[in-house]
Nucleic acid binder design. Structure first.
Length: 271
DNA sequence: AGATGTACCCGGACGC
DNA sequence: TGCGTCCGGGTACATC
């Protein structure tokens, strides 16, 4: 599923394409993807200008010129594309938002959604989100504090959006590997040196993943050429049974807090 | 605090 | 080729 690097890549790509552009048309083919009647959804959008696109965790926020926002969450396997209106979509599109330069298409939305909300409603909905991994105020000290008092497995806290916003299944495992601790290690077992490595690993992994366009191949359009490059650089995620590229041992797939985890038993400490 | 379960949703995998 | 069945997983919420 799209996580921090994928959504951040989308945000950057979208900024170059739709910031400052007016909405020229709206088409809703799946009402469940939106939160109001399709006519109202269209009426609220057509003629409005998108000032800019913001990312919060795995959410994207489209800021409209009347103060309202579009809140997007892709959940499991949603994706977006920005294509010329003349180019036929290959897959069924649930929602289309037209701009002068092309159509923004929302595809594969199942649990995912695109909601029109007031700023207040968005704030209420996202109020409990944890800090962004690259928040300037997120020092090592604060990072450690986010986990204070927790006894759960590291993995469940890393993917908890109330702790840090944007990390999911793939990057949690990659971060744990980079830090040399197993995803199922109990939080109280982590020592000062582990926290330092985790903090550093979180930023390095996510930064590298963004540089490679994320691990999922999700090009916004044909100009979005750098996408999915991190897939071949994943060292543990979805590599159960395969050799560890660091020690040549075998990557294990297991479970922690009823979540799938991947790790190298030799490279990552258990406690 | 956290584990567990439920609902939401449907493409894709699987079985026949 | 086609049909039925089942699963997965991010998030919110209830329950224990």
């Amino acid at each position: 599923m799209p996580e921090w690097p994928e959504m951040e890549n989308y945000r950057i790509q979208l900024a170059a394409r739709i910031a400052g552009q007016p909405v020229t048309g709206v088409q809703v083919t799946r009402e469940k993807s939106i939160n109001v009647m399709p006519e109202q959804f269209a009426a609220e959008l057509v003629g409005r200008t998108v000032w800019y696109v913001e990312r919060r965790g795995k959410f994207l926020l489209f800021h409209l010129d009347n103060g309202k926002r579009l809140l997007l969450h892709l959940m499991l396997d949603g994706l977006i594309q920005f294509k010329p209106a003349a180019e036929k979509p290959e897959r069924s599109v649930q929602v289309t938002i037209g701009f002068p330069k092309g159509e923004l298409r929302f595809i594969g939305l199942r649990l995912g959604y695109i909601h029109i909300l007031t700023a207040k409603e968005v704030d209420a909905q996202l109020q409990a989100l944890g800090p962004d991994p690259f928040d300037r105020r997120l020092t090592l000290e604060r990072f450690k504090q986010l986990f204070a008092g927790k006894r759960a497995a590291l993995k469940s806290a890393l993917v908890d959006q109330h702790v840090i916003a944007g990390i999911g299944n793939c990057y949690a495992d990659e971060i744990a590997f980079a830090a040399g601790v197993r995803p199922d290690i109990r939080i109280p077992s982590l020592e000062a040196a582990d926290w330092e490595r985790l903090y550093k690993a979180m930023r390095e992994v996510l930064h590298d993943a963004l540089s490679a366009g994320g691990y999922m191949e999700l090009p916004l359009d044909s100009d979005d050429t750098l996408t999915g490059g991190y897939n071949e650089r994943c060292l543990v995620y979805d590599r159960g049974g395969e050799p560890c590229l660091r020690c040549n041992g075998t990557i294990v797939q297991s479970e922690a807090s009823s979540r799938k985890i991947f790790f190298c038993p030799a490279c990552q400490k258990e406690r």
